[in-house]
Amino acid sequence: MRAVGVTEFGGPEALQLVDVPQEPLGPGQVRVRVAAVAVNPTDTGLRSGLYAERDQVEEFPYVPGMDVAGVLAEIGEGVETDLQVGDRVMGIVVPTGAHGAYREDIVLPARSIARVPAGAGDAAAATLPMNGLTARQALDAMALQPGQVLAVTGAAGAFGGYVVQLAKAEGLTVVADAAEADEQLVRELGADVVVRRGDGVADRIREQYPDGVDGLADGAVQNEAVLPAVKDGGQVTTVRGYAGDGQRDLHVHPVFVGQYAEEQEKLDGLRAAVEKGVLTLRLAETFPASGAAEAHRRLEAGGVRGRLVLTF
């Protein structure tokens, strides 16, 4: 079957259509006929070889991708589900070797999929699982209470936008960063206070909340530069493994969405949040699978709001 992957690590031009064998279906698993996959920064890192040592890559092709949407094609033995063959589903993929989302057909743990939100197309639905679950995991880790203040950096991005919307639905006050061009978007997502993004953002947050915020979701990967925005004893979530500098009594939680890859109830909760209007699916543009290189170039050039999606 067709997939998009690399036979050697490199720039966007390294991506190519490749043939991969169909994965066998085992107990507790499902097969999804893939219609759409989201393009994320983790995919560009995988393509370039950033994770090669961590993943102990031994053979090619290597297939990126963490989000899929499509049709439930087969249900393995021992799966208890109300889903049926033919249902439209979305899922999260933990990529390894040729097992990545950028393929026409993929086998996943049954608990890695959920029904797509009612009224959402496959391309839009594919933008939700990975970033939505990462946002859910970040908020779960901080366990803030209604009325507390959460700062969000990278609020115009996919992860940050979902954090803002989920946090507001849970009664938190949200202060978020934004470039001038994104300020209206971030306000529409629900931020109560918007400060200018970039160097010095911690100072600008402290100007609004002199005692510091209760929690921080650092989607912009500013790490130690933004920690001063948080009060002593506050909660911090990071998305690239940063565990804090140990300088103050902060509770820093690096989030790794693979830990939520089989949290089906969480994924289905995101579906319900979309249907209730709590979450907004933000699809920027679609490309055919053969246009994966161009999609990666667009993403790496920066400035994309919403998600780029490949279609099969």
Rank of each mutant, 00 (worst) to 15 (best):
D105E: 15
L50A: 15
V221H: 14
G241C: 09
A110G: 07
R136P: 03
L108Y: 04
A229K: 07
V274T: 10
A138V: 10
G76A: 01
A35S: 13
D140P: 07
V213H: 00
V149H: 03
P129L: 00
I75F: 04
V163G: 12
V4C: 11
V85T: 14
L299R: 11
Q247T: 11
R31F: 01
G160I: 07
R136W: 15
L279T: 13
L133G: 04
D214Y: 10
Q259W: 10
D67W: 07
G45P: 05
V71N: 05
A52T: 09
D249W: 02
T7D: 11
L15P: 00
A135Q: 06
E183V: 08
G154Q: 04
G132C: 06
V18F: 08
G70M: 04
V186Y: 07
G119Y: 01
V71A: 07
A217N: 10
T134R: 12
P228R: 06
A125S: 15
G119A: 03
L308R: 09
T81H: 05
V174A: 11
D211A: 14
F60E: 08
G26K: 02
P21L: 01
A73K: 07
L172E: 02
I113L: 12
A141E: 12
P109W: 00
L189W: 10
L128M: 09
A169S: 15
L299D: 11
G10N: 10
A52S: 12
E275L: 12
P64S: 03
V193D: 09
D268P: 02
V116T: 15
T237L: 00
V304D: 07
M90Q: 07
G65C: 12
I113P: 06
A126H: 09
D122W: 03
F287G: 08
D232Q: 08
R197Y: 13
D249F: 08
R271I: 06
P61T: 09
G212C: 01
M130Q: 14
G91V: 04
R2C: 04
L50Q: 12
V304T: 15
F256Y: 11
E23S: 11
H251F: 05
